[in-house]
Computed example of a mutant assay.
Amino acid sequence: MNLRKIVHGTWMAFCVFLLVSPALFFFIWMLSLSLKYEIDNGAYPPILIPERIAWKNYAGVFESNNFLLYFKNSIIVTGGATLLALMVGVPAGYGIARMRATKSAMVIMIARMTPGLSFLIPLFLLFQWLGLLGTLVPQILIHLVVTVPIVIWIMISYFETTPLELEEAAMIDGATRWQVFRNVALPIAKPGIVVAFILSVIFSWNNFVFGIVLASRETRTLPVAVYNMLSFEQVSWGPLAAAALIVTLPVLILTIVAQRQIIAGLTAGAVKGG
Rank of each mutant, 00 (worst) to 15 (best):
Val195His: 01
Val195Ile: 04
Val195Trp: 09
Ala196Asn: 12
Ala196Gln: 04
Ala196Thr: 05
Phe197Tyr: 00
Phe197Gln: 01
Phe197His: 07
Phe197Lys: 03
Ile198Met: 15
Ile198Cys: 01
Ser200Thr: 04
Ser200Asn: 04
Val201Arg: 03
Val201Glu: 06
Ile202Thr: 05
Ile202Arg: 02
Ile202Trp: 06
Ile202Tyr: 07
Phe203Gly: 08
Ser204Asp: 13
Trp205Asn: 09
Trp205Glu: 03
Trp205Lys: 12
Trp205Ile: 10
Asn206Ile: 00
Asn206Arg: 08
Asn207Trp: 12
Asn207His: 15
Asn207Asp: 15
Phe208Lys: 03
Val209Glu: 12
Val209Ala: 08
Val209Met: 15
Val209Thr: 13
Phe210Lys: 05
Phe210Arg: 05
Gly211His: 10
Gly211Asp: 04
Gly211Phe: 04
Ile212Cys: 10
Ile212Lys: 12
Val213Pro: 11
Val213Leu: 15
Leu214Phe: 08
Leu214Arg: 13
Leu214Asp: 07
Ala215Pro: 15
Ala215Ser: 15
Ser216Trp: 00
Ser216Asn: 07
Ser216Gln: 11
Ser216Met: 07
Arg217Ile: 06
Arg217Pro: 13
Arg217Val: 01
Arg217Tyr: 10
Glu218Ile: 12
Glu218Phe: 14
Glu218Lys: 14
Glu218Asn: 14
Thr219Ala: 05
Thr219Leu: 03
Arg220Lys: 10
Arg220Leu: 12
Thr221Gln: 14
Thr221Glu: 13
Leu222Ala: 00
Leu222Asp: 02
Leu222Glu: 04
Pro223Gln: 10
Val224Leu: 14
Val224Thr: 04
Val224Gly: 02
Ala225Trp: 09
Ala225Glu: 00
Ala225Arg: 06
Ala225Thr: 08
Val226Lys: 12
Val226Cys: 13
Tyr227Met: 14
Tyr227Thr: 11
Tyr227Asp: 09
Asn228Arg: 01
Asn228Ser: 07
Asn228Val: 14
Asn228Met: 13
Met229Ile: 05
Met229Cys: 10
Met229Ala: 03
Leu230Tyr: 05
Leu230Thr: 00
Leu230Glu: 04
Ser231Cys: 09
Phe232Thr: 07
Phe232His: 12
Phe232Ser: 14
Phe232Glu: 09
Glu233Tyr: 07
Gln234Met: 04
Gln234Glu: 12
Val235Cys: 02
Ser236Gly: 07
Ser236Trp: 14
Trp237Asp: 02
Gly238Pro: 01
Gly238Trp: 02
Gly238Cys: 03
Pro239Asn: 00
Leu240Gly: 00
Leu240Met: 04
Leu240Thr: 04
Ala241Trp: 00
Ala242Val: 01
Ala242Met: 06
Ala242Trp: 02
Ala243Phe: 00
Ala244Ile: 08
Leu245Met: 13
Leu245Arg: 05
Leu245Tyr: 02
Leu245Pro: 05
Ile246Trp: 03
Val247Leu: 11
Val247Cys: 11
Val247Ala: 05
Thr248Gln: 05
Thr248Leu: 11
Thr248Tyr: 07
Thr248Phe: 15
Leu249Ile: 11
Leu249Arg: 00
Leu249Glu: 14
Leu249Lys: 00
Leu249His: 09
Leu249Tyr: 05
Leu249Phe: 12
Pro250Ile: 09
Pro250Ser: 07
Val251Ser: 14
Val251Phe: 04
Leu252Ile: 10
Leu252Asp: 13
